[in-house]
Write a protein that binds this DNA or RNA. Structure first.
Length: 855
RNA sequence: GCGAAAGUGGCGGAAUUGGCAGACGCGCUGGACUUAGGAUCCAGUGGCUUAAUCGCCGUGGGGGUUCGAGUCCCCCCUUUCGCACCA
């Protein structure tokens, strides 16, 4: 019977599903392992690129399960978000309908891949049973002052008609639609993540099993910097302006001050400036600059003198106060002391506007540079010594910083300060398809949270989708009109919904008890099962999702709901799958759908002619016509082949280019495995005595178990598959010789089925059953290698002369060094190279090589 | 500009601690079998040279350490990713 993947695959998918093999009773004891694939946005169709993530996870799940762990592997849906709403506007389908049908499609897809999830734990963030707890958590945070409302300039995407978090703005553009983001002043809801900045930064040190890259990105994003706030008196105002600096030791070199044009004191400082109007015009111009323009290095610095002065508290000199577009209002105090000799930005600004420089730090032991000779600032924080700096003169910079901060504090003009780049998390979205923020605006009582017993605030389903500006929710009178929970008077309900990153920042805890209608989760069970032992997902979530999840976990910790602060113990980022696509130079480099590509003499052209097409390998995406849908592959080769190919293609963390041709290799491999089963069944009951061939195959068996196991443990799935192919080839050779022992062949073949099961689960289950096993292979125990039986008794010794390979021979694995070296010297191939030479040194690496050094 | 990772056959990639470079697979070449397939099986396949061996060269480039370097050190080049006025 030939290998017919179609039939056996649907058979086993049904059996696994019916027997609920992947379900875990979280209340039962056992060695727990919680693994999790980042829950997906239900966009509908999956392509083979998405498969990598899920197939990898399923292989791990089956492996760990066979290892005897109690493995929780749930799946759910990050189901709120803009695409559903856009689909509603475009096609008139309700976001809920669109989402529900996409979920059904994706579940079928997972099943067709043979992927097992504990579906009893399924959740969708758009269900009120889930988002109710978003609202509950929001209210807890509101009570603690961690959720607050503030007017602030926000990033507004005119195309998506909503505000964006800083994290969703990339190079001044909307992360989603790439439209340029503009600044708008709006009242918005924020979560006070900055309060946790220090803990989030410090916690990174413990995450040793996260990719270094991700930790680094988080650290940069949090942007912790240690320095001091220092007050500079402003005679004209009769009060001080505070600056933040990380180099308080350079304060004697502060020759001017620069404020952000948005700084609140600017108006007073320029009040009697003769060119006030011109300066105000310039300020408006800077404010209207997009972040992109303002922060672009190429556009150069812009500045204006305010006409006012500040007093340097250490030199007591009056220094000019400037305005500069490079000073950001959101960071620090929006004001800096400028030390052009020791800060490159200040240096450039000073050169541009002819402001003075003063050297106050010099290389230790070296001459003090002359200010007028400087071609760049000297910013070394470690190797410098203060000069011309009053009481700190002569101190090395790190000491000087401590000393000056002490002095600043003693004089009461400032203090040591730690600041962060991280800003509070803006969660308001003027969109419909999200969690309603559970707040009521009452004219008498102000902001009133919806009482817990009135949760959830249900998202109304009957809503008009017009695509015009504004949140559709605001037009639903029955939703907006609410009675104040405090005084009962008619009040207005908040119509903003939450950023969907709120949904995904604690779902991993809900998975353990997804249907609990009485509380967010059961702390006892969550504390037993969490943190997540292995989290798997794309590196695109390196900052946003992972930082928010770490933040919310700490909030849950402080609410005494969980005992841990880090939600994910190990993190794995799988690489992207790419595919070659074609672009047409004759059509403005548009991507060309594959059916329209024609090869003539091996050169690709558009069907309708024009210039030769340009091949480009890129992430699979519908807009580039380079997606490979799995259906056809499964139809032709089966899901097992696609799974094995997907894991074989490259190391799982690397980017990998999908090759339509290469997959045939895995199909051949599985066909061979299938045929070995048939050959074994056809063997004579007991055809021979166990001899050398049997011992050799047994040795291969134990080597394969050891090799495959350690490679899966290290996530080297590609080489684990290579090792199985080698082992499979060894079985093939054994069977091809004929006349072997059926018992040995069966035993070795069954081991192959077990090792291969995480990768090709259907085929292996089928043969496990055919060979008479009662239980399912997925529930069998992972084989254990016997290191003694895996040892080779004969080894190949390589002989080198002066490091060059000159010969080789076989030796007993246990042979003595003397004997091996003697044989090496005596061997025919080596002898000519020794003739007339003296051996000055002999290097022997046990079981590997002999290197003879001659003169 | 700063930081990180990576450069190995025609292609994807392999090579615990420095120890036979190219495992495993795709492709390619030759052959077998044919009920002619989107097959299957066998053999070969880094380059130069050769009838074949031998030999020489070979892991982005250059230098170094070592008996021995894809692996360690220094310099350079290229690619990818992240950050990019955060005081």
């Amino acid at each position: 019977m030939p290998y017919e993947p179609k039939e056996i695959e649907s058979k086993w998918q049904k059996l696994w599903s019916e027997s609920r093999v992947a379900e875990v009773d979280v209340t039962k004891p056992g060695e727990k392992y919680y693994m999790l694939n980042m829950f997906p946005y239900p966009s509908g169709d999956l392509h083979v690129g998405h498969g990598r993530n899920y197939i990898l996870g399923d292989a791990l799940f089956r492996y760990l399960r066979m290892k005897g762990l109690s493995v929780l592997n749930p799946m759910g849906w990050d189901a709120f978000g803009l695409p559903a709403e856009n689909a509603a506007i475009k096609r008139g389908t309700h976001p809920r309908e669109w989402t529900v049908s996409n979920i059904a499609r994706m579940k079928r897809q997972f099943e067709a891949w043979g992927i097992l999830y504990d579906w009893s734990k399924e959740l969708a963030s758009c269900d009120s049973g889930y988002y109710r707890w978003n609202q509950w958590l929001f209210i807890r945070m509101f009570e603690k002052g961690l959720a607050y409302r503030a007017k602030s300039p926000v990033n507004w995407c005119p195309s998506c008609q909503t505000v964006l978090a800083n994290e969703q703005v990339r190079e001044g553009r909307c992360e989603r639609c790439a439209h340029e983001v503009v600044q708008k002043e709006l009242e918005q809801w924020f979560l006070r993540i900055t309060e946790y900045a220090d803990r989030l930064d410090a916690g990174l040190d413990q995450l040793t099993e996260w990719p270094e890259q991700v930790r680094l990105q988080q650290r940069n994003w949090i942007g912790r910097s240690v320095g001091a706030d220092v007050q500079f008196e402003i005679p004209k105002l009769g009060r001080a302006i505070t600056v933040f600096t990380t180099r308080p030791d350079t304060i004697y070199g502060a020759t001017f001050m620069v404020l952000a044009p948005e700084h609140p004191d600017v108006a007073a400082l320029i009040a009697d400036h003769p060119d006030r109007a011109a300066i105000e015009t310039w300020i408006t111009h800077v404010r209207n600059q997009s972040n992109l323009e303002r922060q672009a290095e190429t556009s150069g610095k812009e500045g204006r003198f305010t006409g006012s002065h500040a007093v340097n508290p250490f030199t007591n000199e009056e220094i000019p106060i400037w305005l500069g577009n490079f000073v950001l209002p959101q960071y620090g105090t929006g004001a800096i002391m400028s030390v052009p000799a020791h800060d490159q930005r200040d240096f450039e600004f000073a050169k541009q506007f002819g402001l003075p420089l003063r050297v106050v730090v010099a290389p230790a032991g070296g001459p003090v540079p002359v200010a007028s000779d400087l071609e760049a600032s000297w910013t070394d924080k470690e190797g410098g010594v203060s000069v011309d700096s009053g009481s700190i003169t002569g101190l090395p910079s790190p000491r000087a910083i401590e000393a000056i901060v002490e002095e600043i504090e003693a004089r009461g003009i400032g203090r040591g300060m730690v600041r962060y780049r991280l800003r509070d998390w803006l969660i308001s979205r003027q969109r419909y398809w999200g969690t309603p923020i559970p707040i009521i605006y009452c004219e008498a009582c102000g902001l009133v949270p919806v009482p817990d017993d009135q949760l959830p605030v249900q998202l109304p389903l009957d809503v008009p989708f017009t695509g015009r500006e504004g949140n559709p929710l605001a037009k639903v009178k029955s939703f907006v009109e609410a009675s104040c929970p405090k005084c009962g008077k008619l009040a207005r309900r908040e119509t903003d919904t939450m950023d969907t990153f709120v949904d995904s920042s604690w779902y991993f805890a809900r998975f353990v008890t997804p249907n609990d209608a009485t509380r967010i989760f059961d702390p006892a069970i969550v504390n037993r099962w969490l943190p997540v032992d292995q989290y798997i997902g794309g590196v695109e979530h390196a900052i946003l999702h992972l930082l928010y999840a770490r933040f919310i976990t700490r909030v849950l910790h402080d609410l005494e709901l969980v005992t841990f602060e880090e939600p994910f113990r190990r993190l794995f980022n799988q690489g992207m799958i790419t595919k070659e696509g074609f672009r047409d130079p004759s059509r403005n480099m548009a991507w060309v759908p594959l059916p329209e590509v024609e090869h003539r003499d091996g050169i690709p052209y558009h069907r309708t002619g024009g210039q030769p097409l340009v091949a480009e390998t890129a992430k699979m995406s519908k807009s580039q016509f380079n997606v490979v849908p799995p259906d056809e592959l499964i139809e032709r080769f089966g899901a097992d082949t696609e799974r094995v190919y997907t894991l074989f293609i490259a190391p799982p963390q690397d980017e990998a280019a999908w090759d339509d041709q290469a997959i045939i290799g895995q199909y051949r491999f599985l066909n061979r495995v299938w045929s070995y089963g048939e050959k074994i069944v056809a063997m004579a009951a007991e055809s021979s005595e166990a001899g050398a061939a049997e011992a050799k195959l047994q040795r291969r068996r134990h080597q394969a178990i050891a090799g495959v196991t350690s490679r899966i443990d290290r996530f080297n799935f590609n080489t684990a598959i290579s090792a199985m192919m080698e082992y499979s080839n060894a079985i093939g050779e054994y069977l091809a010789q004929g006349g072997g022992s059926r018992a040995t062949a069966t035993e070795c073949y069954e081991t192959l089925l077990q090792l291969l099961h995480p990768f090709a689960p259907h085929l292996t289950e089928e043969w496990w059953e055919k060979l008479g096993h009662e239980g399912m292979l997925v529930s069998s125990s992972w084989p254990v290698a016997d290191t003694e039986l895996a040892k080779e008794d004969v080894v190949t010794i390589v002989v080198q002369v002066n490091g060059k390979l000159r010969g080789e021979f076989e030796a007993d694995a246990g042979a003595e060094e003397n004997a091996v070296v003697a044989e090496a010297k005596a061997s025919a191939k080596v002898a000519p190279y020794l003739e007339g030479k003296t051996i000055v040194k002999t290097i022997y690496v046990a079981g590997r090589l002999v290197n003879l050094v001659v003169k």
